[in-house]
Write a protein that binds this DNA or RNA. Structure first.
Lengths: 262, 262
DNA sequence: CCGCAACTTTGATCTGAATCAAATTTCGGG
DNA sequence: CCCGAAATTTGATTCAGATCAAAGTTGCGG
């Protein structure tokens, strides 16, 4: 899902990349990217798990013995501050992988934002597989680069001192997520609560509410029920987001041969 | 440099991890981690480059044909906003790798904050090597996980709505960086400008200046010349940083077998 | 050793968003 | 179909930090 196989990679990485990929998009319209062999192997070590809306998947500091791959639903990754408020680091969508650990412990907590179905892959099993399958390893690198860019983008978003800009960026982000999945990029669906959005954007829920309203008043979006927003003027939204915005593509058929930092 | 070889990895990854690593710390007291063979191979494809203070290393969007590994000096990775202000995504120190790309183009711009010496590794050459060396590939994964955690941490930092807390977190970050390199964790050296710090913390340079002063007034730090700060009360600093602060270790001998997102 | 330019501190004011406080809407379950 | 809890909107007030402005520092190049 991160590496397209319908287009030639730009530079020197042919076969290794073309073959690599973790899951084909589960049922979606995206190309299948795992080899049959890989899929078979996967089905042996992974198990399906379900979480209902609001369920805790794991807590920060829990022993990290598995990673998850979302089949359907939305998950939030967050940390709890001493004052009990949460700071959301990311929203995770179908096909996203999660379970970042350090020293064998999960670095963040995760909770289901909607009902969630996911594959659960025990780390021990994955490790063995990883080491034997260079292509898979390469794919993981691609994934990580993508995540790194996403995290950087989140940081850039949070660097903005303007509430409207943050919300605009957030909507752009949702647009891209949905577009990448073949859904309409105009009719945004917000599965999460205003409060969650606020925790993700580093502002108060009231400020989120007001910013959304302002966007609507300016005719940039229109509000359906509270979980859906239609983008009317993509250009203005972009202008507000202002961030020297690179149009991120949601794959890595690109040049993943990059470093780490920066 | 990211994987220690002086300690057993916690779980199931023995040899692959123990062998992996990109450079041994260049002259520092950290263990050498590349095999001789890897070092030799490296010296063939890499070249030394130097940049003087303030020099642009590359711009956002430049063709990404190499990655860099810092030998000495400090680099900032940033993006320029439409209004010409910069937003700094990361400061990079010796042993850090940088050059994140997407579609063959650098995602961020980088500039030398001090005089910088670095290895320049052409991507083409690295790629071939990477594909043949699973251990190296694994090491890159470790590196990326580390970077991902760093980026997340930056985002968490920026999520804080409190100027003092941000500066406190920034100082902690510097402490850890220096400690990881075997330097004093109390005598902080700030190679970058107040304005750079502000751009990194998402606040105005005046606010940075005032926050530093407040920290000094409270006896939490003392100020030497403007590029050095001594931490007097680590506990209070930590309390201010408040962030459900996980003590990040600057290596990845840990469980890098994690996912991407989250 | 001087002078200037870049950087930093300090001060005064203003503003956008946090906070506090209701009022209102939504929606799932009985 | 109605009820109540949770989510959201809206309003009033406050305040931290941005912005504007000016006065100190520092350190480099001549």
């Amino acid at each position: 899902m991160l590496i397209r196989d319908d287009e030639d990679p730009p530079a020197a990485h042919g076969p290794a990349i073309a073959a690599v990929a973790l899951w084909g998009a589960s049922g979606g319209r995206r190309a299948q990217l795992l080899t049959d062999e890989q899929r078979a192997r996967l089905s042996v070590i992974a198990s399906i798990v379900r979480f209902k809306n609001g369920a805790q998947i794991y807590r920060e500091g829990d022993r990290a013995d598995a990673i998850f791959n979302i089949v359907s639903g939305v998950v939030k990754s967050y940390r709890v501050l001493p004052d009990k408020t949460e700071r959301i680091g990311a929203f995770l969508f179908p096909d996203d992988l999660f379970g970042l650990a350090e020293e064998g412990r999960y670095v963040n907590a995760t909770k289901a934002v909607t009902a969630v179905t996911a594959y659960r892959i025990p780390v021990a099993a994955l490790e063995g597989w990883l080491r034997k399958d260079a292509a898979l390893e390469f794919h993981v690198i691609c994934k990580l680069c993508h995540e790194l860019r996403e995290a950087q983008r989140h940081a850039f978003l949070l660097g903005s001192r303007n509430a409207l800009a943050r919300v605009a960026m957030f909507f752009q982000l949702l647009q891209q997520h949905q577009a990448a999945r073949g859904e309409s990029a105009e009719d945004l669906h917000l599965p999460m609560t205003r409060s969650d959005v606020a925790d993700y954007l580093g502002m108060s829920l009231e400020a989120v509410s007001r910013s959304v309203r302002t966007l609507a008043d300016r005719g940039i979006v229109s509000l359906g029920n509270r979980r859906s927003v239609k983008v009317l003027n993509r250009g203005q939204l972009e202008a507000l987001a202002a961030l020297s915005g690179r149009e991120e593509k949601d794959d890595c058929s690109t040049d993943p041969l990059m470093s780490s930092n920066d």
